[in-house]
Nucleic acid binder design. Structure first.
Length: 228
DNA sequence: GCCAACGTTGGC
DNA sequence: GCCAACGTTGGC
């Protein structure tokens, strides 16, 4: 596995958010390569007809920090350019230590797309698009005492944390700053529109989050528009 | 660097 | 199971 992804995340441990694997979905793990993600690529599916808890998402947003920052002496920098520079432009997304974020990763299916979001930097925003190329499997860094995201409370016979593999797809035609997305969010919140409930704003600290097809498509459409 | 928001911990 | 203290996230 590649570098250190970042996906920071709190170090939690048990929590209320279900530690459940159960939650719908999810795949099998490890060998994972199989499974064709059937419905997946179509992008659409049932979202509108399901309750939030059972909804199956097919688009995601994953945060990482493109600028150097040291955590326990280790640089957690990992921007989209760093992903692009790796062999096969692919990396595991390890280090997520938040149950909600983990559960979303466990719902991801091979072939689904995600926005690569740059956080904690000069200009936060969406930098490009990545694809899920391997579904959730055990994040080995949780057992590595040397790793920044080591979790002493997780045991190999019952791992707590998962990761997926992602592959670089492309840069956005233009960088989409958080500030611009926020303007749309506020606008849509008052007058209606696809970004009115976007998780990026309603649960700002979540490092892995879902987007509805409507949200994803709207954000994509901004590439061809002038900045607000 | 500040600090608001919010998830987690742990006493009770 | 409540909730205050604490730690982290991440925009600004």
């Amino acid at each position: 596995m590649p570098p250190k992804k970042m996906a920071r995340v709190t170090k939690t441990a048990a929590s209320s958010d279900d530690d459940s694997e159960t939650v719908s979905s999810v795949k099998k793990t490890a060998g994972g390569k199989k499974r064709t993600a059937a419905s997946v690529e179509t992008g659409h599916n049932t979202e509108s007809s399901m309750s939030p808890s059972s909804r199956q998402y097919c688009h995601w947003l994953m945060k990482s920090e493109p600028e150097s920052r040291f955590e326990s002496g280790v640089d957690v920098k990992f921007g989209i350019e760093d992903l692009k520079a790796l062999p096969n432009k692919t990396s595991s997304w390890d280090g997520v230590r938040n149950y909600q974020a983990r559960n979303f990763m466990r719902q991801m299916q091979e072939g689904q797309l995600a926005f690569f979001y740059h956080s904690n930097c000069k200009e936060p925003g969406i930098a490009g698009i990545i694809k899920i190329v391997k579904e959730a499997y055990v994040d080995h860094t949780q057992f590595d005492k040397k790793d920044v995201h080591y979790d002493a409370t997780s045991k190999p016979n019952n791992p707590k944390w998962s990761m997926v593999d992602v592959q670089y797809q492309r840069m956005m035609k233009r960088y989409l700053p958080l500030s611009e997305l926020k303007k749309y969010h506020l606008q849509h919140r008052s007058k209606g529109g696809p970004l009115k409930d976007m998780t990026l704003f309603t649960r700002a600290r979540l490092s892995v989050q879902p987007l509805t097809t409507e949200e994803f498509d709207f954000v994509l459409s901004l590439e061809d528009k002038d900045p607000l």
